[in-house]
């Protein structure tokens, strides 16, 4: 399109209600498209430009900062009721560029790009010198803590056998020396008390996810593991696009991802959390 009068953008205040409306839609978009990790909440609107759009409507080019909450992406809790992850817990921020179309008074997302990054170690330690920092999710101590916690949860659980879906965050705590982990599990078609080979268990078609928090503390001669899991409402089976030529839809099945419990599970102090359906 040729440049000319009338094709420039209009400036809008970042705290203008119209800008906020576009930004809140953008945050909803982020949270409804998250596949893993935690829901985010709006922290600050950085920039906004409003461009005319042909043949009608306007496009909001908007930059926003978000902060991670403590609600997992699969948690049905509305983000408005979720706490923001505090600096002491090693906060994570999101930096997002959006293009949001406003047409006939309705907003819709045209483009989204977000990067998230944890606060710097220096900044966390400035606020709280003894606070544990985020640990790599593939750290052997983290992996061990998750395996021990899940085995302990399944050992005390009379219902389905739960498989690991995702390790969401982890911290190596200096005092007392322990590993704190948060992870997601999902129910399988196996009964936890009867599982002999976890590799043969399959996730249920109607997914039932759980979110667990656990702490593994080393002690003389063994380890203590405390784990609490909250199981969310079942997720309805979504119709999957079928290749041409197939008539009968079949529910998508996630291949089982075996998680073998540690061979010699230490004596565990287990807090099995409420199975909230």
């Amino acid at each position: 399109a040729p440049h000319g009068p009338g094709l420039g953008y209009r400036e809008l205040n970042c705290d203008d209600p119209e800008t906020e409306q576009a930004a809140l839609l953008a945050v909803d978009y982020i949270n409804s498209h998250l596949l893993r990790g935690y829901k985010h909440t709006l922290n600050q609107i950085d920039k906004v430009k409003v461009w005319p759009r042909r043949p009608m409507g306007e496009v909001f080019e908007i930059e926003i900062d978000t902060l991670e909450t403590t609600c997992h992406a699969l948690d049905p809790t509305p983000v408005a009721n979720c706490s923001v992850r505090q600096l002491q817990e090693h906060a994570v921020e999101g930096d997002c560029d959006f293009r949001v179309l406003k047409q006939d008074g309705q907003f819709s997302v045209l483009f989204a790009k977000c990067d998230s990054s944890p606060d710097s170690a220096e900044d966390v330690l400035k606020v709280c010198p003894d606070c544990p920092l985020l640990a790599p999710l593939n750290d052997t101590r983290v992996v061990h803590a998750v395996e021990a916690a899940l085995a302990a949860f399944n050992a005390r659980n009379n219902g389905s056998y739960y498989q690991l879906v995702e390790v969401s965050r982890a911290q190596l705590v200096p005092f007392p020396v322990s590993t704190y982990v948060e992870f997601v599990v999902a129910a399988t078609d196996c009964v936890s008390k009867e599982v002999t080979d976890p590799a043969k268990c399959n996730l249920l078609a109607e997914k039932q996810y759980g979110f667990c928090k656990a702490r593994l503390t080393g002690k003389f001669g063994g380890e203590d593991v405390a784990v609490t899991c909250v199981v969310f409402q079942t997720q309805p089976v979504l119709p999957q696009p079928q290749p041409e030529g197939t008539n009968s839809p079949t529910p998508a099945e996630t291949p089982a991802k075996p998680l073998s419990p540690p061979a010699n599970l230490p004596a565990a102090t287990v807090v099995v959390g409420p199975l909230v359906a």
Partner: peptide
């Protein structure tokens, strides 16, 4: 030569439309 005196403009607070307010804390 007639010179118009300059009109003094009162210095008010500069309005910065962006970035907007911080809702929680800045990292």
């Amino acid at each position: 030569t007639v010179v118009q005196p300059g009109v003094a403009v009162a210095a008010g607070p500069v309005v910065r439309p962006c970035p907007g307010r911080i809702r929680h804390f800045k990292i």
